[in-house]
């Protein structure tokens, strides 16, 4: 996975990435790693430059602080996710409405899925 190590190194130059004792990025929950991976994948697709990314992340953090974020590091990947969402909207890939509709679909799909089964978007009863 050296391809990703290079990406992580470059990404780390523009935005802090929490790391463990061995230098590897640290995630507390799977969604954090997914958000992290999406950023690397989108950058690889050429969707944004690292400079754009740094600006989007900084803006997301600033906005969160303005609305009373605890700012102790535990919410870091929430800002990260907000930054991706903003870039996705800015680049015209998905509108806020499209994102909101899709969140609703996943929520309905989860509720329609018996515990222990994989949650699939097809399980949304309104789909």
């Amino acid at each position: 996975m050296s391809r990703y190590e290079d990406l992580v190194r470059v990404a780390a130059e523009v935005a802090r990435i929490p790391r463990g004792d061995d230098g590897a990025p640290v995630f507390h929950e799977p969604w954090e790693a997914q958000a992290f991976a999406m950023t690397l994948a989108l950058h690889e697709q050429g969707l944004f430059t690292w400079t754009e990314w740094a600006a989007a992340l900084a803006a997301a953090i600033k906005q969160a602080q303005a609305s009373g974020d605890c700012d102790d590091g535990s919410t870091y990947y929430q800002h990260w996710l907000a930054a991706i969402e903003q870039l996705v909207r800015d680049k015209g890939i998905a509108t806020e409405q499209a994102l909101a509709e899709r969140r609703g679909a996943w929520d309905r799909a989860a509720h329609a899925t018996p515990h222990g089964q994989p949650i699939l978007l097809e399980n949304d009863p309104l789909r």
């Binding site: 999406m38 989108l42 890939i93 899709r102 996943w106 989860a110 509720h111």
Partner: peptide, 25 residues
């Protein structure tokens, strides 16, 4: 006994599924 996704998991799944459909990820 149904499943549940947190608000943040919904956001991640919504984003990822749209990006996958559009071929970005």
């Amino acid at each position: 006994d149904h499943s549940h996704l947190s608000e943040i998991e919904l956001r991640v799944r919504a984003l990822e599924s749209i990006l996958v459909e559009k071929g970005y990820v």
